[in-house]
Simulated assay, not measured.
Amino acid sequence: MRRGLVHAMAWTLATGAAVTLSWWGVHSVMSGTAYDPPLAVPLATRPLSSSTHRDGPPPSSPAPSPTPSASQSPTRSPSPSPSPSSPKPPPGPSPYPQPDAGASGNVKAYPVSGGRAVFDLGTSSAELVSATPAAGWRMQVWKQDFWIRVTFTRDGREVSVFCTWHDHPPAVEIVDP
Rank of each mutant, 00 (worst) to 15 (best):
T123W: 02
V29N: 08
R138Y: 04
P90F: 06
T67N: 08
K143Y: 05
R116Q: 13
P93D: 01
R157L: 13
P84D: 00
V172T: 00
A44C: 15
P74F: 01
P133A: 05
Q98C: 09
V161Q: 04
A171I: 01
C163I: 11
V159Y: 12
G102Q: 14
L43D: 12
P95M: 06
L5T: 14
W142G: 14
P42Y: 10
A70P: 03
T153W: 00
A109I: 14
P58Y: 02
G102H: 09
D36V: 13
G56T: 13
L48Q: 10
H7L: 15
M9I: 10
W11C: 00
V112S: 10
P58E: 06
S77F: 13
S85G: 01
Y110D: 00
W23Y: 00
Q72C: 05
M139K: 08
Q140A: 11
V19F: 07
R46F: 14
F146R: 03
L43Y: 10
R54A: 08
G156T: 07
S104P: 09
A40I: 09
Q98A: 08
T75I: 02
G25Y: 13
P111W: 10
S77A: 14
S124F: 04
T123G: 04
A17S: 08
T132M: 10
D36M: 03
P59G: 01
T33A: 07
P38S: 07
A103C: 11
L5A: 13
F152Q: 09
S22A: 15
G156Q: 05
S60I: 15
R157S: 08
T67E: 03
H27G: 05
S71V: 15
R54W: 08
T153A: 11
A34Q: 07
L39D: 08
S31T: 11
R3L: 13
P38C: 01
L13I: 15
G115M: 10
H168E: 00
D36P: 03
A109P: 13
S60Q: 12
S31G: 06
S113V: 05
T15L: 01
W147S: 07
F152C: 05
T15D: 03
D55F: 12
Q144G: 15
P91G: 04
P37K: 03
K108E: 02
H168F: 05
T45I: 15
K143T: 08
S77W: 13
D145K: 10
G136D: 02
A10W: 13
